[in-house]
Amino acid sequence: MLQRRKILQYHTNKYNIHMYNFRLVLYVWVLSIIGILVINSAADGFAAKQLIGFVGGSVVMIIFSLIDYNYIAKFEWYLYSINIGMLIAVKLFGISVNGARRWFSLGPFGTFQPSELSKVIMLIIFAHLISEQKEKINSLATILRIGILYVIPMFLVAWEPDLSTTMVFAFLFCTLMFVGGISYKIIGAILGAALPLGGILIWYIQQPGQILLHDYQLNRVLSFLNPSDYLLTTYNQQYNSIMAIGSGMLTGKGLDNNTITSVKGGNFISEPQTDFIFAVVGEELGFIGSCVVIGLILLIVIECLRIAKDARDMRGHLVASGVAGIITFQSFVNIGVATGILPNTGLPLPFVSYGLSSLLSNFICIGLVLNVGLQRNRR
C-alpha cells in the first residue's frame, strides 16, 4: 500500500493541475447523472447500483488520470497474459445466460463482464505496440504480427459468444491502425476487398445450413432486412422502441412515467435499462432530451480528439483517439438499434446504460485520456 502511494505521489507531482481537463469530467458526470435518472425511470432496483458505480468509477477515473499511461504500457505482456487468461476463464467458469458465457458471478455484488475490461487492456497494449512500430506500420510483417496478437483475444470474445463486443474490438483495431499511420493504399485495398465480401456474406448467412451465426444472431439480421416478417417476434423490440421514442415528441412525457402506454408501465421492451435505454430517453425526455444526451456524447468525443491532437507522443495520441473511437462506435450502434437503423445487438450506451462493468471501463478510459491531457505540453 505504501509503495502504491509513493507511485501515485510521484506521478501526481509531475503534473500541472491547471492542465486538468475539468470540462471533460463535467460532461462525463452530467451524462452519467442523466443516465442514473433515466435508469431509475426505466426499471426498479438498478439506479442505486448505478449510483454506486458512478461514485466508484469517478474515483477510479481520478486515480488513472494521475498515473502515467506510459508507465502502465510498460506492463504490456503482463496485461496481455491477464487479458487472455481472463477471457478463457469466463468461458470455462463464467455463468451462462441464454447460451452465452460472458460474466463472472460476484454474488451479492452482481456480475462482472471481462470483455468490458478487455477493451481497455487492448487499447493500452496496442496503442503501445503500434507506437513502437510506427516506422514500420505499413510493412506486411508488422501488420500480420500486430493483427495476429489482436485477433487472439478478439476470437475469445467472439467465442463466448459476444458478437457486439467483437465488433467494438474490430472497430478499435481499425481506429488504432488508421491513426497509427497505415497507408491509404492499404486501406483502399482492404475496402475494395471488404465490400464484395460483405455482399457475399449477407447472401451466405441467408442460406440454409449457414454456420457463421447463431440462430438468434441470424434472426436479428433477417428481422432487420425484412422487418414486416418479424414484427411480432424478433423485430418487436425495435418496433416498440421506435414507437416509444416517437411518442415522446418534443419535450417527452417526463421522468418516472408509468402509464400503461409507457415503456415501463406497458412492459413493451425487456431490459430497457440496458440496450434500449435510448428508447426511455426519447419517450420521457423527448426530442430535446435526446439531443442533450447525443450532444453530451459528442462533446466528450470532441474533447478526447482535442486531447489526442495535442498529445506529447504517438502512444498518447492513439490512447485518446481509441477512446473517442470506442465511445463513438458504441453510441452510434446503441442509438442506431433503438431507432431501427441497425440490426438489434447488445451494446450499452456509454455512461447512460445500466451496467457496472461497462461504466467502470468507460471511466478508466476517460482517466487515461485525462492523463494524456495532463502531459500534452511536456517534452
Rank of each mutant, 00 (worst) to 15 (best):
L2G: 13
R4E: 09
K6A: 08
I7M: 11
N16K: 04
L24V: 01
V25F: 01
V38D: 12
I39W: 03
A42H: 05
A42V: 03
A47P: 07
K49H: 02
I52N: 07
V55P: 01
I62S: 02
L66R: 15
L66P: 04
I67Y: 00
I67G: 02
F75I: 08
W77Q: 00
Y78V: 15
Y80S: 00
S81E: 07
I82L: 04
N83H: 02
G85T: 07
I88P: 01
F93L: 06
F104N: 12
G107E: 06
F109M: 08
E116Q: 14
S118Q: 08
I124S: 13
A127M: 12
I130A: 03
Q133I: 04
I137V: 08
S139M: 09
R145T: 05
I146Q: 02
I148G: 03
I148Y: 00
Y150V: 01
P153D: 02
F155A: 15
F169C: 01
L172H: 09
T175F: 03
G181T: 09
I186N: 12
L191R: 06
A193C: 11
P196F: 00
P196R: 01
L197R: 12
G199K: 12
I205A: 10
L213G: 09
Y216H: 14
V221S: 07
L222A: 06
S228Y: 13
S228M: 15
D229E: 15
Y230D: 11
L232P: 06
Y235F: 11
Q237F: 09
S241V: 01
I245E: 02
G248N: 01
M249E: 14
T251E: 15
D256W: 10
D256L: 14
S262K: 09
V263I: 08
F276E: 13
V280M: 10
V281A: 12
E284P: 11
I288V: 15
C291V: 07
C291F: 13
G295I: 00
L299D: 06
R306I: 12
R306S: 14
A308T: 05
A308N: 09
D310V: 07
R312L: 13
H317F: 07
A320Q: 04
G322L: 00
G325S: 08
I327Q: 07
Q330R: 14
I335L: 06
G336T: 00
L342W: 05
V352R: 05
N362W: 03
I364K: 01
I366D: 01
Q375M: 09
R376D: 09
R378S: 12
